[in-house]
Computed example of a mutant assay.
Amino acid sequence: MNRFEPGAIVALRYITRADSTVGMTWPARVVADGDSLVALWIPEGAEYRAWHRPPGEPRRLVPAHWRRETVRLMFPGAAHSVWCSWEGPGRRFRMYYVNFEEPFRRTQIGFDTNDHALDIVVWPDFRWEWKDLDEFEALAASGVFAPDFARAVRAEAGGVLAAIEQRAAPFDGSWVDWQPPAEWTVPALPAGWDTVPPVPWDLRRWAYRPDLAR
């Protein structure tokens, strides 16, 4: 499948564990699409689709607005991405956010993946903290995440923590001063974001219990 040119608008989609349908989805502009890195820009205010569950009703996708400028760094074959974020009119660098997730797959309109619940927040002074560790451990304890898969996620986290401690890329400051080209406008979800067939992860049956997942 062809690479995307810088500035191209793509859809980044989360594919649900239970039935491999399209879930949360973001519009993004491509910063880079190479052999070792895919970088996507999601600006503050971009309209994406998020889950919402009205009382007594099934959850559904609804429009929402992204709250903080983000460049999402994704590494082919890796089970995590690193989000660099900025805030305020001066674009103050806010944090690195490590999101553990399925290795991404390409589609004709962008990229598919899904979240593994576990996250690490890394502040500019390199203090770090877990996020959603309780949720991850609960998914593992309940059997939604298979034991071998849960161990693999923990091992992936160990490698990321070593990179943080060593200030290795991308935690080396190389993205802190990045700026989008002046001509880039806020992207909208491309046509087909909700109809292009998802590309499920080929290890999904090893990782998840579909009857327990959502």
Rank of each mutant, 00 (worst) to 15 (best):
N2A: 13
N2W: 08
G7E: 00
R13F: 09
Y14R: 11
D19E: 15
V22T: 15
W26C: 02
P27A: 13
V30C: 00
V31D: 01
G34Y: 00
S36I: 01
S36N: 13
L40S: 06
P43H: 09
E44A: 09
E44S: 08
R49Q: 15
A50R: 14
W51L: 12
H52W: 12
H52E: 13
P54C: 11
P55R: 15
G56E: 02
R59I: 05
R60P: 06
R60S: 07
P63H: 07
H65N: 09
V71L: 04
V71R: 02
R72W: 10
L73P: 01
M74D: 03
P76E: 03
P76R: 00
G77Y: 11
H80Y: 15
V82Y: 03
C84Y: 02
W86E: 02
E87S: 15
G88V: 11
P89G: 14
G90M: 10
G90N: 14
R91T: 07
R91L: 14
Y96M: 05
Y97M: 05
N99S: 08
R106G: 11
F111S: 05
T113S: 15
H116R: 12
V121C: 15
W123R: 15
W123Q: 14
P124A: 09
D125R: 12
F126K: 06
W130E: 07
W130T: 06
L133V: 02
E135P: 07
E137K: 14
L139D: 09
A140Q: 09
A141R: 12
A141K: 05
S142E: 14
P147K: 11
P147W: 07
A155L: 10
A155W: 08
E156V: 13
G159D: 08
I164C: 08
I164G: 06
I164D: 08
R167P: 04
P181D: 03
E183C: 03
E183T: 07
V186H: 01
L189T: 06
L189I: 02
P190N: 02
W201Q: 05
Y208C: 12
R214M: 13
R214V: 04
